[in-house]
Design a protein around this nucleic acid. Structure first.
Lengths: 255, 255
DNA sequence: CGACGCCTTGATCAACTTCAAATTTTGTGG
DNA sequence: CCACAAAATTTGAAGTTGATCAAGGCGTCG
């Protein structure tokens, strides 16, 4: 939030009831994430209550949702786009330690301060609300804590998968692993009807490097290599075609 | 559990009441972890119920508590010792993705299969019980889920710290980071009364290498280097003295 | 157009790995 | 307690991978 350029704060209006949506607040009624993520576990009344403290917004690439070591005072529900979580060392070295997609919730339930910065990788749509609002809800809805626990557990399993990647995989394997991971999280719409799988990489090369523990140059060279052996095709720098996803997975485990 | 040699299964006896310990089962009354970890949140009655399904045991180094991809059908509460969590690739490359100390609980609440193997790094004392027993308790004691959630969150923060280490730190920084981490988790008793901090490294060099994403040779060379610059002193291969912990932390962040 | 951001490519270099012993430590049986 | 074998650790020399340094190309936006 620190410097995120905002637009479209529909939630500033007083939420109204909508007879066609059985008491669901209007802000939520049209929301794609209404039935996913944490919102899916809430009753219309709870949704209404939460929406009173909610600000919907659009965040442009590179803008921050939260800063490392800052007080963890708000949460953001991702409605669309990709958020990168990163850690920075005193001398400027950086490592991306997580990627979050809709409908993930950015922010943790316990602990006073953020362990990492959260910033928009792509343009991101979010619903932001204060920590107190979520804490109140969690007390009311035990299911919610379970849902958040599941997300934390999923993130942990991912982080450990990446530890294996960072500790033991070659540059080629890392880039293939990354593309495979993005492929699995990409919107299947994008290649509906197309012969080969096609998707947009939500990160630029320097982000990919910071994610994979490599330099931009090495990442670039691995893209070139994967292109040369026919494992991928680059439509543009960001748009990739993968003729054989299984092949990509194989490369991600054995060079 | 798969091949852990066991001894001392006190829990096989029918738990009895002990008037000096207000209904706490005898197995638990003498347990050092009684008031820590998950047991700390349980009432004597719940403790009694849990202890009926519990087997206390000792596991020797290198023995497995759980295998990667195996059904996640039991949990182990660590009473003493260190457990390593590791992932293995098809070609034999290995990465340690977590270390657990008493009174951590090994095993996750959701998900059918283990994401990694868990094995004893040192000799380990555990209380093991079936998944069903914990699931039942969690439904009864909402606080318990919260406690487990906190542990998961702590493990996640740790895993991300290690991603930074694996992705961006030099060999020297990694070894210093590792020693600093172990120092913080070491039993303060060990150097009570001594002038300098002293502790036992719970892993052998090959484990350290698998944890740091290095080779044993490189780990060994870094130990030599840290010794030469006076950052550590090796009493034995496993026993380390750290004259200045802050110095070690500095090295862990800037070579 | 021209400047800037982003990406690619090439040449050189340093860090870490690999391969190969040597050395120390540990465990076992006499 | 010693002797011996096995395991773990250290050390050295050579080889690779990926980093660093240095241009150059491409696309976009004022």
């Amino acid at each position: 939030m620190e410097d995120g350029k905002r637009s479209g704060s529909a939630a500033q209006e007083t939420p109204r009831r909508d007879i066609h949506n059985s008491d669901v607040p209007v802000v939520c009624a049209s929301c794609e994430a209404r039935h996913r993520g944490i919102c899916g576990t809430l009753s219309p009344a709870q949704l209404l209550e939460l929406s009173k403290h909610t600000a919907k917004g659009v965040i442009s690439p590179e803008a921050k949702l939260a800063l490392e070591d800052d007080p963890a005072d708000h949460y953001s529900n991702i409605l669309k786009g990709v958020v990168k979580l990163s850690k920075l060392m005193a001398d400027g070295r950086q490592q991306i330690v997580g990627l979050q997609f809709a409908p993930d919730l950015v922010g943790k339930l316990f602990g006073e301060r953020n362990d990492f910065a959260a910033e928009a990788a792509t343009e991101v749509q979010v619903c932001t609300f204060p920590r107190s609002a979520l804490e109140r809800l969690v007390k009311e809805v035990p299911e919610l804590e379970q849902r958040l626990h599941r997300q934390t557990q999923r993130e942990l399993a991912e982080a450990r998968e990446w530890m294996l990647m960072l500790g033991r995989k070659s540059a080629t394997e890392r880039v293939a692993s990354f593309l495979y991971f993005i492929a699995l999280h990409s919107d299947p719409e994008q290649d509906a009807g197309k012969k080969v799988m096609q998707f947009e990489i939500p990160l630029k090369r320097s982000d990919i490097a910071d994610f994979l523990g490599l330099t931009i140059e090495t990442v670039s060279r691995q893209f070139t290599k994967l292109r040369q052996i026919g494992a991928i095709r680059l439509v543009t720098n960001r748009l990739v075609e993968v003729p054989d996803l299984e092949r990509l997975r194989e490369i991600s485990e054995s060079g």
